[in-house]
Design a protein around this nucleic acid. Structure first.
Lengths: 241, 241
DNA sequence: CGTCGTTTGTGAACGGATGCACAAAGTCGC
DNA sequence: GCGACTTTGTGCATCCGTTCACAAACGACG
């Protein structure tokens, strides 16, 4: 019940967005990768980069990279390449990272703590507004620079800090309830780590990260590979009558 | 408008080995979702399910579900639906989950521990062969039912237990080195949690799970929403061009 | 100032995925 | 046994994303 790819009907609602940003979803998903590659280049002192190098660093094809960047505007210099700092700025801007987004993390188990300690989190564009848990044994405990607050404070935190993004790192059993509370409190973007499909009203965006799904996809390919290595087709169900 | 986001993600690396066995990649990515929904139905005692219900439970459109399942074979009964247990078996089989895959987890920080404790891990189709770390303070520590082993044992573990899948939950700085060692030891499927693009030879399958990328994608949509709510184009760079 | 080499930005072809709509195939009631 | 009803499986049109290939744009250099 959760997924990695598409969720309910990512299709075409008739009441379409007047202006959907103009940036294709697939491009948006790659911009953060480019941004990270650009940061790495900047830290190495590189000031200018060609689409070819940047594409290699980001693990994509150069034509794709250029087309992606062209959706933000025309920020390259022909015959030269892109100015690293300028491109960092433009990509950050397109992604909405010029402001710092407060994020509330619900669930202070291993996953929640991993999130809270995650370096690239607070550093670039995000700030942890609160780390919540309902377990009294965890409340009050220090995680990095944070103190775990009680889950009851969810609504107060969201309201007072104007939180728009929530991360759900609770067990599956409580995830939907947490999600409902986040939505009711006004959160419109949710990152779900719990292994289930969340139900949300229109206008709320959910992305999920599902470890077991990724593993299963890997298993599929591993199986495919090992069957091929054996030499025979190893007749999966597909071949049967 | 759509309430949830599509999450496009297929192959990171252009050198994508997989000869798909007739099953489209997009379908493979959804099969685990169906499988989870089926397990949930089975536990509730449901023996038969129509594509419509299963699709709803999995958060997809019923036509897509039927087309996906049709790639595995013709396992439905017209006028009735699908037998839950039988479909569980067929999907598991297609994904290669009829065997138990040994997985080695490198990195016993919060993320590695979260993985090790993750319930749906060992339960269905996967078994943690080892949890490795190079930090002496962690080696020997008990995590759930496991004991953290030293990273030096990577090659031995992979060889002795025939590990085909590795999960990298180390800091970014050591991820590529760990990856190289995994590949050299014979691992051909890698799940990468470190925030960098791994370089691997052809024939190795890498999937990435990147928390900050997901957050940044959410930020993009949150920004778009808030800009739209303010009124009109809040003058992002997108509008020019 | 003009030519040359380099790199961007993009038009166009292509391929894969999605959703609709419907015929085929089955069950159920009588 | 038969007709009505339900649900699957799929052909088809459409949309989105990827890739190719090339003209336009730019710096370098004499």
């Amino acid at each position: 019940m959760s997924s990695t790819l598409a969720q309910p009907d990512a299709g075409d609602q008739p009441g379409d967005r007047s202006w959907d940003g103009g940036i294709p979803e697939a491009t948006v998903a790659r911009l953060p990768v480019y941004l990270r590659a650009l940061y790495a280049l900047a830290e190495r002192g590189v000031t200018t980069v060609a689409s070819d190098e940047l594409a290699t660093a980001a693990g994509v094809n150069s034509a794709k990279l250029r087309k992606d960047l062209s959706h933000l505007g025309s920020y390259g210099i022909r015959g030269v390449g892109y100015d690293v700092d300028y491109l960092v700025y433009q990509v950050s801007r397109a992604l909405g990272l010029t402001q710092s987004w407060p994020v509330v993390i619900v669930g202070a188990g291993n996953l929640g703590r991993a999130l809270a300690n995650y370096g690239g989190f607070a550093s670039r564009g995000f700030r942890i507004a609160a780390l919540l848990d309902s377990d009294p044994a965890l409340v009050g405990r220090k995680i990095g620079r944070l103190v775990v607050s009680h889950a009851d404070e969810l609504e107060a935190v969201v309201a007072s800090q104007n939180v728009a993004i929530g991360a759900i790192a609770t067990p599956a059993a409580s995830a939907q309830a947490v999600c409902d509370r986040l939505v009711a409190a006004g959160v419109t973007s949710i990152l779900n780590f719990a292994p289930l499909v969340l139900t949300v009203p229109d206008g709320v965006d959910v992305r999920k990260v599902d470890l077991s799904i990724e593993l299963q996809i890997l298993a599929f390919h591993a199986q495919r590979r090992s069957a091929a290595r054996v030499g025979q087709l190893a007749g999966p169900a597909v071949a049967e009558a």
